[in-house]
Computed example of a mutant assay.
Amino acid sequence: MAHKPNIFREVINTREVIIEQLRRANPKEYDLVKRKLDAIDELLRDLRSLHWIKHKKANERLDYYLKHADLNCRTTAAHYEVENINVIEQTVKYASDKIRPSVDRAISCITEAKDFETIDEAMEAYRESATHPGTYGYFLPGTSLYLPASKYDPSLSLKDCRKELARLGVYAHFVEYVLTQECNSTKLAHILSLLSTRNGKKMDREAVKMFFSGEFTLQGQHTITDQLNRLYEWLEEQNPYRSVNQLEEAELDAGNAD
Rank of each mutant, 00 (worst) to 15 (best):
A189T: 10
N256E: 14
S155Y: 13
F212E: 11
S96A: 00
K67W: 15
Y232I: 07
K28D: 08
L156I: 12
K159C: 14
K159A: 15
W234P: 01
K159Q: 15
Y65P: 03
Q238P: 11
R9P: 04
D153F: 05
N229S: 05
Q227I: 07
D226I: 10
P141Q: 00
K201A: 11
P27M: 05
G169C: 09
A2M: 07
H55D: 15
N199Y: 07
G200P: 11
L147I: 02
F174V: 08
A113Q: 06
C183K: 04
G220M: 06
K151N: 15
R100K: 09
T197K: 07
R61E: 08
E112A: 11
N84T: 02
H173C: 12
L22M: 11
S102H: 12
L32I: 03
E112C: 06
I119K: 04
L165I: 10
R162K: 15
D41S: 10
E20H: 05
I19K: 09
D63M: 03
N6K: 10
N245R: 13
V208I: 06
K151Q: 14
N184I: 11
E236N: 13
D38T: 07
H132F: 09
T143M: 15
K201Y: 09
A250M: 11
S49I: 10
E176N: 14
G142K: 00
Q21G: 02
E42P: 01
K67H: 15
P5K: 09
F8Q: 01
R48A: 08
V178K: 04
A77H: 07
I119P: 01
T186D: 15
A2G: 07
D120K: 07
E117H: 06
I99N: 02
V175G: 02
E251A: 14
N84G: 01
L228H: 05
L47R: 03
A25F: 01
A189L: 04
A189K: 09
R167Y: 15
T180L: 14
D46G: 01
K34M: 12
